[in-house]
């Protein structure tokens, strides 16, 4: 009985493999590339020279204080990997990292009190590639960026509002600002004000 079942398994597996692995995946890939090439290829953003500067969905490292900064990443936004440092709520290393982040914040943003520092800016995201920050995390960075770039605070605030995605269907998830798009907008503002 068992030997015959091994044979049946091998034959059935071969057919199911062709259906589930080959046909299913290639048909979906074909339809996706044909109908939704932008999403299917990773929602890439190109510059005027047609070079890839990133993906709408993947966060980037912004160290320069002239840019809006994103969340803490344990993979330094290297999108060939992903993950978080998995520090438990009770782990002393978590407190040390957060206190260091707060000191850094005070240095870079002397005009903004710590009580206006939103939680998401100094916590590690789940993926290490979170493309978003909360609107208040973007607003809290306005005084610093305005001072460093010369772009007025009003313009920066308008830029943030423009780039804020409300919760989907009004109730799913939180409001989020895409940091890469925000900084692309900031670059354009800077180019506009200097010319």
């Amino acid at each position: 009985m068992a030997i015959k079942m091994v044979w049946t398994t091998l034959r059935t597996s071969a057919i199911l493999f062709i259906i589930c692995c080959v046909i299913y995946q290639l048909v979906i890939t074909g339809i996706a590339q044909l109908v939704m090439p932008h999403q299917a290829s990773g929602s890439l953003i190109y510059n005027s020279k047609n070079q890839v500067i990133g993906s709408e969905l993947i966060g980037q490292q912004f160290k320069d204080p002239q840019f809006f900064q994103g969340r803490v990443s344990s993979v330094d936004y290297n999108a060939n990997g992903s993950g978080s440092s998995n520090l438990a709520p009770s782990n002393p290393a978590l407190m040390e990292r957060m206190k260091a982040s707060i000191e850094e914040w005070k240095k870079q943003n002397p005009d903004v009190p710590v009580s206006s520092l939103p939680m998401d800016l100094i916590t590690n995201s789940g993926s290490g590639l979170d493309p978003d920050i909360s609107p208040s995390a973007a607003m809290a960075q306005v005084p610093r960026i305005s001072k460093l770039t010369g772009v007025s605070q009003d313009k920066l605030q308008a830029l943030i509002t423009q780039n804020t995605n409300p919760p989907q269907l009004g109730m799913l998830g939180d409001s989020a600002v895409n940091v890469l798009k925000l900084n692309i907008g900031l670059e354009q503002l800077k180019a506009g004000s200097s010319s």
Partner: peptide, 15 residues
């Protein structure tokens, strides 16, 4: 003493 928004965002995604 951070901005009082409830909940821990450590390990979570903003969206």
């Amino acid at each position: 003493g951070l901005q009082q928004s409830a909940g821990s965002m450590e390990g979570k995604e903003v969206r």
